[in-house]
Nucleic acid binder design. Structure first.
Lengths: 145, 145
DNA sequence: AAACTAATGATAATAATTATCATTTCGGAG
DNA sequence: CTCCGAAATGATAATTATTATCATTAGTTT
């Protein structure tokens, strides 16, 4: 966690941006919450510590964290952008249960390689991708019966 | 195209929904436009034929078309849901150029199989998935130089 | 400490989509 | 063929997430 804060400070320095208590606080609460969190949810959390915080600030800082390589946007298709930790959390994809919403982070290097080749076979230079696998998790399958 | 209209009529019949000129018209214009079209864009097109059409109707009919298996939602992450033809257009994924927005429909059965296995290895029964490959297309790579 | 500039917070704006509801229209019963 | 009840439509308001605006506040540099 100290690492991440250092990364952020360095990023701000490099970009000539200011290190403010709000930015520190938002990063701090973001880091404390593993998983996928929306700007709105994070706003609710930060507000408890500092009720004077503005929600626009939270939205703004999340964008900064993405640029700084500390957060990554995730879009489960429900109209809300969520953020996950990016620092020391290498790229992965998501498995999402259609019943309960549970998510699992997955990674398959063969799929990754095939995606790259598939793109290249159409002349594309692959920059990034999104892959969301939707299904029914084990728990929900059992409940069904 | 007659096929699709038949499918729609049958669907409406089965669901005890009414066959209205608006629904016919919207389906008709949707079928005439290959590619990915938003409800808003389709509304603009249908409006030319019948200026009295309401945009809510277009949004509603698109949902019907999805249920009838004639259209499929596509989400390129820009906040707009687009629709593509589904009937006789089997599942595929998309390759999207980050520069010019060009899209290519792609399909790789090995990737599909690996996705299924990956999900199963976590106890999930895969129902569907979304895979968007982003990159730079050949044209845009050349323009760069 | 002064001056300059960026950041903040409150609020308005935006954009896509959905909900509401009065009016119209379809489709079957008589 | 006409009447009735339910469903569909169109206009509009509401919603939701996010972004823009802008006056005020607060870092930073000198």
């Amino acid at each position: 966690m100290e690492d991440e804060k250092q990364v952020f400070t360095n990023y701000l320095l490099k970009k000539n941006l200011r290190d403010t208590p709000q930015r520190e606080m938002i990063l701090d609460d973001f880091l404390k919450n593993e998983g996928h969190i929306s700007a709105e949810q994070l706003y609710d959390i930060v507000k408890k510590r500092d009720p004077s915080i503005g929600q626009a600030t939270v939205y703004r800082v999340m964008k900064l964290l993405v640029e700084a390589g500390l957060a990554r946007e995730v879009d489960f298709g429900d109209g809300v952008i969520r953020y996950e930790h990016s620092y020391k959390h290498p790229h992965h994809d998501h498995l999402i249960c259609r019943k309960c919403g549970k998510t699992v982070e997955v990674m398959d290097s063969i799929i990754e390689e095939l995606q790259k080749r598939l793109a290249e076979s159409f002349g594309f230079e692959l920059t990034d991708h999104e892959m969301y696998l939707y299904g029914i998790c084990e728990d929900c399958q059992n409940k069904k019966d």
